[in-house]
């Protein structure tokens, strides 16, 4: 039911973990729903220079988490805020319909981390 790309990212996810002393932390979802994503970011000169994730959830949740970390690195804050859950799903060659709303939260987690960064730097 998953695309080959989802399976590849599920099996070999990149950027697992947590950045020490991050500039921003974002966590979305809750254990009740079965999906939690926690994203930490490092920002230099308005650019995201490092992103790591920890995720509790299904294969789609893990693959989208990994994908967003790769999509976000090197982007400006403005560019990163333009990433959407939809663009993450598209980059994974799509997700099964049922997963589009329940496990496709990676961009939300990234945006939460950016908001946290913006709050801290003001």
């Amino acid at each position: 039911m998953y695309s080959a790309k989802v399976m590849e990212f599920f099996l070999n996810p990149k950027n697992i973990g947590e950045i020490e002393n991050p500039d921003g932390v974002g966590e979305v979802g809750n254990p009740r729903c079965g999906d939690i994503m926690r994203i930490t970011i490092k920002v230099e000169d308005d650019h995201i220079v490092d992103v790591k994730f920890k995720t509790f959830g299904c294969a789609a949740a893990i693959a989208t988490s990994s994908m967003i970390t790769e999509m976000a690195v090197g982007k400006t804050i403005k560019e990163a805020l333009e990433l959407t859950n939809r663009s993450v799903a598209d980059a994974l060659d799509g997700l099964p319909p049922i997963k589009m709303h329940c496990s496709n939260l990676a961009a939300d987690a990234l945006h939460a981390a950016i908001r946290d960064y913006q709050k801290r730097s003001h």
Binding site: Y2, M7, F10, L11, C33, G34, D35, F56, G57, C58, A59, A60, A61, I62, I98, K99, C102, S103
Partner: peptide, 28 residues
């Protein structure tokens, strides 16, 4: 951990099991 991730991981090792996980039943 979540059941579907576990099942898919086991499947890749050639082990077929099942789960009461929401993600496998198509509900939340």
């Amino acid at each position: 951990i979540e059941g579907e991730s576990l099942l898919l991981s086991l499947d890749l090792e050639g082990i077929a099991g099942s789960s009461g996980s929401a993600c496998t039943s198509g509900s939340l």
